[in-house]
Nucleic acid binder design. Structure first.
Length: 312
DNA sequence: GGAAAACTACGTTGTGCTAC
DNA sequence: GTAGCACAACGTAGTTTTCC
């Protein structure tokens, strides 16, 4: 997992948090006796085919701390987050990284025991074996807490590696922006991910089209607000596909809808895995009669520097 | 020379204990 | 009850050795 700068002040519970597929219940490597002792609720893992009684749901809800709710909110928003990302977002002010990791682990394990969250069997990333983290998502109880007791039962399957990689890359960008914002590089006024980031508009022939950026961000530096459509590229799409999507952004700009809505046209940021891919995409767009001023290109870990530089 | 097995390194997970 | 520390266990990538 990539390292991020850490700048989080103490407990941010209550602040707006960063704004989802059937899995096996979390298997504990060893008997989780200590968790059962310390938890307010006795750990009763969600079983397949058995719905949590409303009374128990309410008890789980009451037992949750503000940080628990913030964790659930972020998992709802991003679909998938690694242990490391959750640690950076919610526990990075502890005395040491180890202590933060400990707190993160304990909080997630407790929520997993309650069925509020769950992790995938698969681990991703890491140069060394141990650096691969669990990937977490909203659990069945968490799903009902978010959507109410009448929420339809989740029917989920294991995401493909490609899907998971992309979703985690989107989350990675969002985490970087959040941490940079906390460090004072800029103000992060708004950050939405799919499907909240989608924008419908009338294209040629009055045909309704939907722009589907991976994320939409509004940042501010001094008195200037900047608007960004974020496209996270994992080098899995062909260049013609990238160009088609870029053409769609250009069509949207021509409608004038964005200027009417925001006062300016948002910039489209292509975030790529490496310099070679960045060059390839930039060349493909440049040779497609597209206005390059509408686009910015950066490798994934340079997103904060690009955003901090403003749109001007 | 290439494949497979064995070994090594190291980050993360998990537990027990202690202090506050 | 919560959080931190210490330590053991685990899992996996990289490296080295062995065998065919």
């Amino acid at each position: 997992m990539t390292a991020y700068p850490s700048d989080r002040p103490s407990d941010r519970a209550g602040e707006p948090t960063l704004e989802p597929t059937e899995f096996r219940a979390l298997p504990a490597r060893k008997a989780p006796g200590s968790i059962a002792r310390s938890g307010v609720m006795p750990p009763v893992p969600e079983r397949h085919g058995r719905r949590t009684p409303a009374g128990r749901l309410d008890a789980v809800d009451r037992s949750m701390t503000d940080t628990d709710r913030a964790l659930l909110g972020d998992l709802d928003r991003f679909g998938f987050l690694t242990t490391n990302q959750l640690q950076l977002l919610h526990f990075s002010t502890n005395a040491s990284e180890l202590a933060a990791a400990r707190r993160t682990y304990r909080a997630l394990t407790r929520l997993a025991q309650l069925g509020v969250v769950e992790h995938l069997d698969r681990r991703v990333g890491g140069v060394r074996a141990g650096s691969a983290s669990y990937v977490w998502r909203v659990g069945p109880v968490g799903h009902r807490l978010l959507l109410g007791d009448t929420a339809a039962r989740l029917r989920r399957k294991e995401p493909s590696l490609r899907t998971l990689d992309h979703r985690l890359a989107v989350a990675d960008a969002a985490v970087r922006l959040t941490l940079a914002s906390r460090a004072g590089s800029f103000e992060l006024l708004k950050l939405t991910t799919e499907p909240d980031s989608w924008q419908s508009f009338l294209g040629p022939g009055a045909v309704r089209q939907v722009l589907k950026p991976d994320a939409f961000a509004v940042t501010a530096i001094d008195d200037y607000e900047d608007y960004w459509y974020l496209e996270i590229d994992r080098a899995t799409e062909s260049l013609p596909t990238i160009v088609r999507k870029s053409l769609q952004y250009a069509r949207y700009v021509r409608t004038g809808d964005a200027v009417q809505r925001y006062g300016v046209n948002p910039l489209v940021v292509w975030l790529v895995p490496d310099e070679k891919r960045k060059q390839a995409i930039e060349n493909a767009i440049a040779t497609s009669d597209l206005d390059l001023r509408l686009f910015r290109f950066a490798v994934q870990d340079a997103i904060t520097a690009l955003i901090a530089g403003g749109a001007g």
